[in-house]
Design a protein around this nucleic acid. Structure first.
Lengths: 195, 195
DNA sequence: ACGATGTCAATAACCGGTTAGATAGATAGA
DNA sequence: TCTATCTATCTAACCGGTTATTGACATCGT
């Protein structure tokens, strides 16, 4: 698009907002909401701290905006396939391995927004996935040993198993990435395998 | 013991320390290290803020002490059985369900101490578990489809699957506790089942 | 000129940490 | 046993740095 190739102008609110969102994502992924510093975010975005309050309302609102944008990008990237869960788990695994900030951001969100209403985009995405799983179950393409919710929860948990290790585990020599990936895919396969 | 039944004295450093540790555990489980407030901890322990710095050195050190005590209690409570992993997963599940603070505290620790050296007690406990798993494998009592590390990571991840749901999932009607527990145990069983 | 965009510098609240001193309870001398 | 003294335990008030937030001012693009 032409707008993409326009020169870096000195003043461009849209670009500045995006820089702030990116910087906020990195800062909050590293330190969380309570630990994140608006000063650092502004510095990383190469703009003044006050702009945060001009474009977003508060530190909390900035987190919400950054997290929502991040989640939207995540949802767009991964495509859920209810009839091939091992492959889905493998893609999730790759995302977590390639960008550890994904898991960290989600973890902060879970801890610091535990009483929140939840993002509508995520809620509807979940419902769509559950529907796909139930569809696959009714067509006989997926085990009905458990209900769709349990399957989704278990698969996602297995996919993120290696990404949520505590510091104590990192010390031990973990298997290489290929082995870890295979373990995830294999585990999901066995989970949903027909008897 | 007689010392256990001694009356609540007005001044007792050991009891005060314990109250501080308990209050710190609750506060940090709720808000994390950066979000936790020493003022609230002191109030919850019904003592002055300065005592925190008399008995522990800093807010960070208080967290470390509270977390170490909490972990020790956890390690004492659960007994690992390398030859009956489904039962182990079931016990873990029960712990997480009965006391959500366990998972929250561990999550904060993982996020806010990600570069730390790790607790020696946990490291050695992990090594002991891995050794038991390898032993069970060499005796043919446990599948050697994956190495012991992968098995341990996968089992613990499955056991905590329901305890690490994001706010969006809580909204949907999750299965009841019995069903969730069965899903965990069954998933582990299938994971390690002989072909 | 003028609105959009961004800077500068201040401010008020917060928060971890400190200090000087008070008080309860133990101990010992008489 | 009584009481003076001592020490561990605890408290109220305070301090200085940090942090989110704001309002007045500057500057760019059109």
């Amino acid at each position: 698009m032409a707008s993409d190739s326009r020169p870096e102008r000195t003043r461009d609110a849209a670009r500045t907002k995006q820089r702030l969102l990116d910087a906020a994502r990195d800062e909050f992924a590293e330190y969380g909401i309570a630990g994140g510093r608006v000063e650092r975010i502004a510095a990383a975005a190469r703009c003044n701290k006050a702009l945060i309050y001009a474009y977003f309302d508060s530190k909390d609102a900035l987190f919400d905006a950054a997290f929502a944008a991040h989640v939207q990008a995540h949802l767009d990237r991964v495509n859920f396939d209810g009839t091939d869960l091992p492959a889905y788990a493998g893609r999730l695994f790759d995302i977590f391995e390639d960008d550890p900030a994904v898991i960290r951001l989600a973890s902060w969100y879970r801890l610091e927004r535990s009483n929140g209403p939840g993002l509508p985009a995520v809620i509807s995405a979940n419902q769509a996935r559950l529907e796909k799983l139930r569809q696959a179950q009714s067509e006989g393409k997926l085990t009905d040993r458990w209900d769709a919710t349990a399957i989704l929860v278990l698969v996602q948990s297995i996919a993120s198993a290696w990404a949520t290790l505590n510091p104590e585990f990192s010390a031990t020599t973990a298997p290489d990435r290929t082995t870890r990936r295979l373990a995830v895919i294999d585990a999901v396969s066995r989970l949903i395998a027909a008897d």
